[in-house]
């Protein structure tokens, strides 16, 4: 039976080490945990911060749908997704995915799948705050992200 993923949408930072422990504590069937942590870049020193707007309610629901799809598709022993919102500065963590499985392939693929669909389907939008010139523009969606997501069809 597919596991029930853990999904959190929050303003606060998170601790990847603690999240990995939650997936492995007290169990002996986990063969590997693959994690992805996304950080805020400074875009060559240009960026003061990113402001992440989200659609409360739908953000949790949509990530939950994507995560459940991954859990149905791969034999995972656990799956955690965290996505932050609000103002995030360069060097800070934005997003976290951890997939645990008895064998590595499922964990690698599930986390890759999760990130592709978080990019294209989770209702978040990034606005740039610039070091010089105040509020910049909204980050534009990349067609490469759509192409990445289409790999899983």
């Amino acid at each position: 039976m597919a596991i029930v993923p853990s999904v959190r949408v929050q303003a606060d930072d998170f601790n990847p080490e603690a999240e990995i422990k939650k997936l492995t504590a007290g169990r002996s069937d986990v063969g590997g945990v693959v994690t992805f942590t996304g950080y805020c870049r400074d875009e060559g020193g240009r960026l003061e911060a990113l402001e992440l707007e989200h659609f409360p309610g739908m953000a949790e629901a949509e990530i939950g749908r994507i995560a459940q799809e991954a859990a149905n598709r791969w034999p995972l022993t656990g799956l955690s997704v965290i996505h932050r919102f609000g103002k995030i500065r360069p060097g800070e963590q934005i997003v976290f995915v951890a997939a645990a499985s008895s064998h590595r392939r499922a964990a690698f693929e599930a986390s890759d799948f999760l990130m592709d669909f978080l990019k294209t389907r989770a209702p978040f939008w990034k606005k740039e705050h610039l070091k010089e010139g105040g509020t910049g523009s909204w980050v534009e969606a990349k067609s490469a992200d759509d192409a990445d997501a289409a790999r899983w069809q």
Partner: peptide, 10 residues
Amino acid sequence: VALFPPMTGG
């Protein structure tokens, strides 16, 4: 109904 631009999370 919600209307919005293409998403840029992750």
